[in-house]
Design a protein around this nucleic acid. Structure first.
Length: 573
DNA sequence: TTTGTCTGCCC
DNA sequence: ATTCTGC
DNA sequence: GCAGAATGGGCAGACAAA
């Protein structure tokens, strides 16, 4: 009995998390969390925070459970002795959540209740169990271990154990920011100071440990430990009046990269702070021979061949390849284009204004001969438009506008950096299928398969064929209207998917049209989203596949300008 | 061995 | 990545 | 003004099935 009441019990943690999930308002959530955390010893506190904010594994551990929703769902169905496709999926469609489904099935089926013997594991043991899952390779073995774990946990704790297996948030409206606020409250420290420590350590667990032992000052920037990237918000062009407080750079369609270097040691990190050095050995080698002082650069990796920046799809062929062959390296040669410096010699430069950081990176670029972005002073909207066109002509996505006097706001998306893009286009499509969503969208149709017309197309027998899926760009009100309209045109159901009579016309916006031989249409859209529901149009107004092909050809025929008379980036010789 | 499915991680 | 919503 | 939630396409790699 006493064991059951122990504060370090995972069951107790799960109950706390559940009550946070059910509580409205972030201050009330923080209060609940703080009261709970205050009872824990430093090591338990660290784990409790880590589970709430980062999952079963600390962000800096690099570990993954590598178990996806399908494997888990199948295991749950097996454990409950129900059919995965018919019962589990239907239940998930109704609740909008796999883990919610797991909790309810486990609560309500006698079958599972009989197998269930509460083991009252403590927080540390949960880590060991997750570790075991991570170390197991085969999906079948993972499933076996998972069901054994479930048999020792309550249905509620089982739900949250599964959520711990995916990285990041528990989806209870309570993320690392709130956890830090709870910690700030308990230990009466400044929230900004905690956030800074969190950035430096890269881990909630470590930050909690430091604050609870009153040693926050031990959080120090360490070279080769990445820090969170500064992010950009889309521009609301009318809101910008004081153009001259910004500078402009072209927005590269590549891969964000943080480069740490000191002497012959070089490490590259992706946007999610994963190590990607192995994927780009030629970059590592080229920086290693420069013998740089201790430095951290922010920049972009792009494929660059014959003086032309190549499309993102080319880069994708390199991104996931951990041991690239020489042939691959020469087929898709890459550059690192620097545009910011976060650390130099002995000190962090993130608090300096951009102009000052720019002076540093220009000097570094000149001395050590590496490419940096071209920067332009701007003074008017018209000039921004000109630069925008030039960026597109170079094959880039658009522009970045950066406030000259802004610091490097690591891990935040503020209006200090604005991205200027322009949707590539839009087409009128018709809804062919609808699927229920998850979370707050559970139980209603929220994800739509959209089609273009092939009525007069000799290559196809159908009237419409799918061109893409979209789930956003509509408001909650439009979502309700859509669901009402859909009820009247369902002609078939395949599990959670409803096939609709083609009636509802949607103007679909996208960033690009990509050829894809694996789909029926042979083309797909990049970043498709609703632009408008066209209640005023009928299926006969829907654009044809030929129209899509024409748009693609039109775009394809535009040549990417080589980096000759004008430059997206500067490379000192 | 070959082909298909699932997963993670880029955008 | 994108978008909308809630705080 | 910002964080959070819910979702898109495409690629390589790991494992499963044929």
């Amino acid at each position: 009995m006493s064991k059951q009441k122990a504060v370090d019990n995972f069951e107790r943690w799960a109950q706390l998390v559940q009550s946070i999930a059910e509580t409205r308002g972030s201050n009330a959530k923080i209060e609940l969390c703080a009261n709970y955390l205050a009872q824990l010893s430093p090591s338990q506190l660290a784990l409790a925070c880590q589970y709430m904010g980062e999952g079963a594994f600390s962000n800096i551990s690099g570990k993954r459970a590598s178990i996806g929703s399908r494997t888990i769902g199948m295991a749950a169905a097996d454990y409950c002795k129900i059919d995965y496709d018919i019962v589990f999926k239907a239940c998930r469609t109704a609740t909008g959540s796999s883990t919610e489904t797991i909790q309810r099935l486990f609560e309500n089926l006698t079958e599972t209740r009989q197998k269930n013997i509460l083991r009252h594991w403590d927080l540390a043991h949960i880590s060991e169990l997750a570790e075991k899952l991570a170390q197991t390779r085969a999906r079948k073995d993972k499933q076996r271990i998972l069901t054994r774990i479930w048999s020792g946990l309550s249905p509620l704790a089982s739900k949250y154990f599964v959520r711990l297996l995916s990285q990041g948030s528990l989806r209870i409206g309570f993320e690392s920011r709130s956890i830090l606020q709870a910690l700030a409250k308990i230990y009466e420290v400044d929230y900004e100071q905690l956030r800074y420590a969190h950035m430096l350590t890269g881990s909630i667990a470590k930050t909690a440990e430091l604050v609870s032992t009153h040693s926050l000052d031990q959080a120090q920037f360490k070279l080769f430990n990445p820090i969170a990237f500064m992010l950009a918000a889309p521009i609301q062009s009318r809101s910008v009046k004081d153009w001259d407080t910004f500078i402009a750079e072209e927005k590269f369609d590549g891969m964000r990269c943080q480069l740490h270097a000191y002497g012959s040691k070089v490490e590259l990190f992706s946007r999610d702070l994963n190590v990607v050095s192995n994927q780009f050995p030629e970059l590592v080698d080229s920086f290693a021979i420069k013998d740089l002082p201790p430095v951290v650069l922010d920049g972009e990796i792009c494929v660059f061949r014959e003086s032309i920046i190549q499309p993102f799809q080319d880069l994708q062929k390199r991104m996931g390849v951990k041991k690239p062959t020489q042939a691959l390296l020469s087929k898709y040669p890459v550059v690192f284009i620097g545009y910011d410096v976060l650390f130099l010699e002995r000190e962090s430069t993130v608090k300096q204004p951009l102009t000052q950081r720019r002076i540093s990176i220009e000097k570094l670029s000149k001395t050590y001969k590496f490419p940096i972005s071209s920067q332009h002073a701007v003074s008017s909207k018209k000039q921004v438009e000109q630069l925008f066109e030039q960026a597109l002509a170079h094959g880039n996505e658009g522009l970045m506008l950066k406030q000259k006097n802004a610091p490097y706001s690591f891990g935040e998306r503020k209006n200090h950096w604005l991205k200027v893009k322009q949707p590539s286009g839009s087409i009128d499509t018709v809804i062919l299928y609808a699927q229920a969503g998850s979370g707050k969208r559970g139980g209603s149709y929220s994800d739509f398969t959209l089609g273009v017309s092939v009525k007069n197309d000799a290559r196809y027998e159908e009237e419409f064929i799918p061109i893409g899926k979209a789930y956003g760009g509509y408001t909650d009100q439009e979502w309700k209207q859509l669901n009402k309209a859909i009820k009247g045109c369902i002609i078939n159901r395949f599990g959670p998917t409803a096939q609709l009579h083609p009636e509802i016309v949607v103007e679909l916006e996208f960033e690009a049209i990509q050829p894809n031989p694996r789909t029926k249409a042979k083309y797909t859209l990049r970043f498709p989203r609703f632009k408008a529901i066209r209640w005023d149009l009928s299926p006969s107004d829907v654009d044809s596949l030929e129209h899509v092909e024409m748009l693609f050809e039109e775009h394809q025929s535009k040549k990417r300008n080589p980096q000759k008379s004008s430059h997206s980036f500067l490379k000192p010789e």
